[in-house]
Amino acid sequence: MTSYTRLPSVLFAATLVTTGLPLAHAVNPVFLKVTIHDLDADGDLPDDAALCLPAVNGLPVRGRDRSPAVEWSNAPAETRSFVLIMTDPDVPLDVTLLRGPRPIPVEAARDTHYHWVLYDIPATTTSLPAGADGDGFSPHGKPATRTQWGQRGVNANTWLMAGNPRLKGTYAGYDGPCPPENDLKPHGYTITIYALDIDHLAAKPLMDGPDVQKAIEGHVLAKGEAVGHYSLNPALRKAVAE
């Protein structure tokens, strides 16, 4: 088993105020150490975590869609709950590029999609095993219910699948990577853990990532992140394999 942590806390501290939510108590800020397990030596997510695998003879192939194992530490003693959010900030903004024949350049404008939203995680929980919040694709989505790990929020598939009658529905919890095969940029899937000073969010039904980020404002005691990369571009996957 390989562990991989991106952005050590000492580096991550310098960007907290400008790129993320302010800490609730920032005089002596604490930063969580977050680890995604089972990444390879290059920091890539395993195929088991992906919703899509490389096409075979031009036909799409569905992946296992298994949520990765995640572990975190260094939470303040007064932590009362955690939030987990997994984003892909590398989604091409121009949707006409996604399945086109032309390669998507690295410098193409990008958007952020939310792949995993889990909140009200008990303060006693400091890790999630592989498959904890999804082990297999569920057509029409997994329900936005509370599990033993926390309350599921809504992910981007809710909107991405809305135009497909066979798949549309409310997708909650984890659904993994499905980057376009013609993208020249490996996507960086960022898992962020927030330690909060409250037990439960003042939540409304079907909270998505931005809803949760707004709800935790002023309650963040500590924060940390780790990144796992993934690509379906055959050239990039070949380069990694070699």
Rank of each mutant, 00 (worst) to 15 (best):
R6I: 14
S9N: 15
S9I: 14
V10G: 13
V10I: 15
F12H: 10
F12N: 07
A13E: 07
A14F: 13
T18G: 08
A24K: 03
A24L: 04
F31Y: 15
V34A: 04
I36S: 14
H37Q: 12
D38K: 11
A41T: 15
D47R: 06
D47C: 02
D48I: 12
A50E: 05
L51D: 04
P54S: 04
L59P: 00
P60D: 01
P60Q: 01
V61A: 09
R62P: 00
A69Q: 09
N74T: 14
P76V: 07
A77N: 14
E78H: 08
E78Y: 03
T79L: 00
S81P: 03
L84E: 01
I85E: 02
I85W: 00
T87G: 00
T87A: 06
D88P: 01
V91A: 14
V91D: 09
V91Q: 10
P92Y: 08
L93E: 12
D94S: 12
T96S: 13
G100M: 10
R102S: 15
V106I: 15
E107I: 11
A108L: 08
R110M: 08
Y114C: 10
V117F: 00
Y119N: 00
I121V: 14
I121F: 03
T126K: 09
S127H: 13
S127C: 12
S127E: 12
L128N: 05
L128C: 09
L128A: 02
P129Q: 05
G131Q: 12
G131N: 08
A132W: 05
A132P: 05
A132Q: 05
G134C: 07
D135P: 01
G136E: 01
F137H: 11
F137T: 01
K142W: 12
A144N: 06
T145R: 03
Q148R: 12
G150F: 01
Q151A: 02
N155E: 13
M161Q: 12
G163L: 13
R166S: 15
G169F: 12
Y171K: 03
A172D: 00
G173S: 03
G173W: 03
D175V: 09
D175Q: 09
G176M: 04
P179I: 04
P179H: 05
E181M: 11
E181T: 14
N182V: 03
D183R: 02
L184K: 10
L184G: 02
P186K: 01
P186A: 05
G188L: 07
Y189V: 06
T190A: 14
I191E: 13
I191M: 10
T192I: 06
Y194H: 09
D197M: 02
I198R: 13
I198L: 11
D199V: 11
H200L: 13
P205G: 02
L206I: 07
M207L: 08
P210Q: 02
P210H: 00
V212E: 00
Q213P: 05
I216L: 06
E217I: 13
L221W: 06
K223R: 15
A226P: 04
G228E: 01
G228D: 08
G228T: 08
H229P: 03
H229S: 11
H229C: 10
S231K: 10
S231W: 06
L232M: 09
N233F: 07
A235I: 09
A235W: 06
L236R: 06
L236A: 04
R237D: 07
A241H: 08
E242T: 13
